[in-house]
């Protein structure tokens, strides 16, 4: 058992390395090729000066392919890591920030790859993959005792509920991360027409579609959470800060869904709402660090 826990950690390490390399490839791919030209010119007075100009071109197809391949490695190894821990614990690893973030890395990369396949564009990876790398660094920095598999306190020993509630949250957050990436690219692509970026219309659609998955999932998180709270604590809504911050982020995405149909709001401003929504998501994710309340047993 000890051994499997260790192996799980090694798999996580392998995933982190794959994801970091993948992020580098995606970023290089999205930025494209930059060729610097130097030209030496002569003035009429006989002095010379040199000018340099940059020429941009689409990224090499090959480097994008490596990005995808490495991201798949990341999915496989983080999946193995999650799987091994599940075997040891007899449940999905979702009960402290270490387990939760580990699972999040796996889910986010997988969802990203699904979007990549569906839309056939790779540039989102330049934003999503660095997020997974950031998460991996965070997981790395967590105290080592969190890597042990612990028994759960009675309130958490409700496997089905916990799995449904928490995994919905992870899926929703992953969708919102993809929507965030689409919004950032949208803002870039709609400001300056970079020929090799996906069209703003497509980016807008990616953002919207990610939210159409994430928003109902987030509603499920709130609902399952309150059903569970009703069973465990006798009240379905306590205005606990983790609850209210989840409600807050859900409302932000509710705003987004309305603005998308409004003249003056659709496009750029909607993209900003998505970016703000992701900030709210991050706030909820790390909320345990500054909230007290009933969700405090996040193990932070």
């Amino acid at each position: 058992m000890e051994g499997l826990v260790k192996l799980s950690f090694y798999c996580f390490t392998a995933a982190a390395i794959a994801l970091a390399s993948s992020a580098v490839c995606y970023v290089a791919y999205a930025i494209g090729r930059v060729r610097l030209r130097q030209a030496v010119m002569q003035t009429s007075a006989g002095t010379t000066f040199s000018t340099s100009s940059a020429e941009f071109g689409p990224g090499a197809v090959g480097i994008g392919r490596y990005g995808t391949l490495l991201a798949w490695f990341g999915v496989v190894f983080s999946g193995l890591s999650v799987g091994l821990r599940s075997i040891v614990a007899g449940r999905l690893p979702l009960s402290n920030m270490y387990e939760y973030s580990l699972t999040f890395i796996f889910v986010l990369t997988a969802i990203y790859l699904a979007f990549e396949r569906f839309y056939g564009v790779k540039q989102l990876g330049a934003i999503v993959l660095p997020i997974t790398v950031g998460m991996a660094i965070y997981v790395w920095s967590l105290p080592a005792w969190m890597r042990d598999v612990d028994d759960l306190i009675p309130a958490l020993q409700y496997n089905l509920m916990m799995t449904a509630h928490v995994s919905s949250a992870i899926l929703a957050y992953a969708c919102f991360a993809v929507a965030f990436a689409a919004a950032v690219l949208y803002l870039i692509a709609s400001k300056r027409r970079i020929a090799w970026l996906p069209s703003p219309a497509m980016l807008d659609d990616i953002g919207f579609r990610a939210v159409t998955v994430g928003f109902p999932l987030m509603a499920m998180v709130l609902i399952l959470g309150s059903v569970w709270a009703y069973r465990a604590w006798g009240t379905y809504w306590q205005w606990d800060p983790k609850e209210t911050s989840a409600l807050f982020m859900w409302l932000v995405y509710g705003v987004y869904l309305h603005t998308r149909g409004l003249r003056g709001w659709r496009g750029t401003r909607s993209a900003w709402v998505l970016i703000f929504g992701f900030a709210a998501t991050v706030f909820t994710y790390y909320g345990n660090y500054f909230f007290g309340g009933l969700h405090a047993y996040g193990g932070v």
Binding site: P58, G59, R117, G120, V121, A195, W196, P198, S199, M202
Partner: peptide
């Protein structure tokens, strides 16, 4: 948003 996809450098999965 459709024209550019045709000319997309990466033709892996044409939309």
């Amino acid at each position: 948003g459709f024209d550019r996809d045709g000319a997309r450098p990466d033709g892996d999965q044409p939309m």
